[in-house]
Design a protein around this nucleic acid. Structure first.
Lengths: 225, 225
DNA sequence: GTGCTTTCGCTACGAGACGTAGCGTAACGC
DNA sequence: GCGTTACGCTACGTCTCGTAGCGAAAGCAC
């Protein structure tokens, strides 16, 4: 599952779509031949999530996923390099629904986002899948970058938008310089995501409304509002 | 690696030591026969940590650990039920060194503990091992309980001690009732551990002194000191 | 010392997943 | 229709798993 073999493209075209996914990110005009089935992609990712629920990370096998999705095992290997990449893409789709509510106050905005985040993390496929790939990413830089791009940045954007909106409303002081602004955003992001993840996965307690309210109160007061 | 077979004890003695570890926790007088080698235990756990560094979780095999430790594979299986339990014990030892410093002020105490915690999490064997077993624990209650007992509680104790000490010094208000005291302690714990874990593993940035100072400032101000 | 008990190292084994190769067929663009 | 690519299927060698069985070693009771 490690050594990517050459993957030589017989003609000198760029980048065979192997490993790709991530929507239309590959060559803008993959022109000739039979196109890949988008249905198969969706079925595979859905089957992966279901397999995560039923089996967990360690017992999940690519052969089983292929069977569930109704595709051949070889089809699966033509698109993903291995279990890690497949699960990242499968889990990343869960975070598509994350949106920043416009509730009128910073506290309400934060509570809304955190509740959404908590709801996603409460799903068993997110729990086992996300933590496992993060663990694998500790010794696989490419995988970490893949997670950052398709999962983390999507969350972080909400923090930046929320702060910007709060500053326009005067609920948060403007940052003196962009350097410290970036550091503060990183800190907030780690505190929010970290607390929810730890609550849900390690403490194994639900991040319900009451908890989110307490957490938001501490965070906002700590940020000096 | 799943179905524990009967493990019938021919004589009707209690609890064959399988799965045990956790020091002298097994039957107080395991009297007769050749005793288990404590040296082997230590060698196996050390070899497990080194294998985590070299290979990461998914590529770590019990056969390889046995070779590294200089013991037979069967010896390893006689003591641990599988990879999960072995790694939990190997990682748990890393947290033995956690201690609450007595620095005179709450802020300094917190910063000290968080820095210790961050130093442990910075080690590659802690990163990959801890996250992987947490992921596995999402669908294995016994494993989660094992993690809670040997890792989480050891950390949580520091939060409780630190708060108690701060209340004696008057730096934190006493809690009105034990119910809310418990909830607040849980919240603090999730915030501290979660933020450090997220910073170290997901954001992949060091939780250095500067970061810890910023974090502590936000946390303490949020707690109303 | 002599036994009794348990652990140890070693070898061998079937089961299962991995990841690939090869083939014939199906679907699209020109 | 033709070229090109994706698809389903089968088969294969390799690796790890977890266990069984054996003889030898290391303690304790007597």
């Amino acid at each position: 599952m490690e050594h990517r073999p050459p993957v030589i493209s017989l003609t000198a075209t760029q980048e065979p779509p192997v490993y790709g996914q991530g929507m239309q990110s590959r060559s803008p005009a993959s022109r000739t031949g039979r196109p890949r089935s988008a249905t198969a992609d969706a079925a595979i990712l859905a089957a992966t999530r279901q397999a995560l629920v039923d089996l967990g990370w360690s017992k999940l096998t690519l052969g089983d996923v292929a069977t569930r999705a109704g595709v051949a095992k070889t089809t699966l290997y033509r698109r993903w390099a291995g279990k890690n990449e497949l699960v990242v893409d499968a889990v990343a789709e869960l975070f598509d629904e994350l949106e920043l509510p416009d509730s009128g106050s910073l506290a309400a905005d934060i509570e809304g986002v955190v509740l959404q985040f908590a709801a996603i993390l409460a799903r068993p496929e997110a729990k086992s899948g996300l933590m496992a790939v993060v663990a694998e990413a500790t010794h696989d830089d490419a995988l970490r970058e893949r997670i950052r791009a398709s999962v983390v940045d999507r969350q972080k954007r909400l923090v930046l938008e929320g702060r910007c909106r709060a500053q326009e409303r005067g609920e948060l002081p403007p940052e003196p310089d962009s350097e410290s602004a970036s550091r503060t955003a990183d800190l907030i992001f780690d505190m929010v995501a970290g607390a929810v993840v730890h609550r849900t996965l390690v403490s194994a307690e639900p991040a319900d409304e009451e908890w989110v309210r307490s957490f938001t109160r501490v965070l906002l007061q700590g940020l000096g509002t």
